[in-house]
Amino acid sequence: MTSAVMVEEKVVYERPESLADVATHYCPGCTHGIAHRIVAEVLDELGVRDRTIGVSPVGCAVLAYKYFNTDGAEAAHGRAPAMATGIKRVMPDHVVFTYQGDGDLAAIGIAEIIHAATRGENITTIFVNNAIYGMTGGQMAPTTLIGQETTSSPGGRSQTLTGFPVRMAELMAGITGSAYIARRSLHNVKEINTAKRAIKTAFLAQLNGLGFSMVELLSTCPTNWKVSPAEALAWVESDMVPYYPLGDYKVAEEVKPLMKRR
């Protein structure tokens, strides 16, 4: 007689409920997938998936509404914060977030994002900064670094011709209506975990009605940077982080207890 050995299996990793069970269109090595996942994990942990409405941008994340297992809308280029404002004002008990890239948020939509913050609009913005226009094939973004080669800054971005990369987290932190503004990076596991905590704080700020919150995520674009995924991660750390320092840029007094609670 043989005795059966029961081995208890423990789930250590699974798809968050807030992430749809579909393949994404993102390129290999792109960190959009990581950003989606940690946002979805936060929505799960806060138990708000079924009352969340996401607003997608124009850009690489244009189809984000297919990847989040929440209600979603697709905004015009740069207008996601205005659209989110319209939604939040008539659905104040719902969780409303925008997910935007650097062309969408920092170029064509800079008015909408700044005024959403000046109104203290009680929404959360996930801002993916990969220093390039990905969807249109690698043109210069407002966040492209000086000297960075793109298809519309041949020979590298020139400060004489195009000025300087915009630091959005610093800009948004200067706005009184901003409750929580942070910049994080997705270039290694430690930073990803830190980024997730910031995203949770941002959504908690919204759930507590404290005003506008935004987490800027330094992200990769190996396809348009024309490097390998590993090289892309290394470039974020070596070149992006020095110009875009990581950290909390605005933490309203009422937000501080939310950060301690975890």
Partner: peptide
């Protein structure tokens, strides 16, 4: 802040 923003706010609210 602009008519561009106001119509997109309308769009958002209309979606609900």
């Amino acid at each position: 802040e602009s008519e561009v923003a106001s119509i997109n706010m309308v769009y958002g609210a209309a979606c609900t």
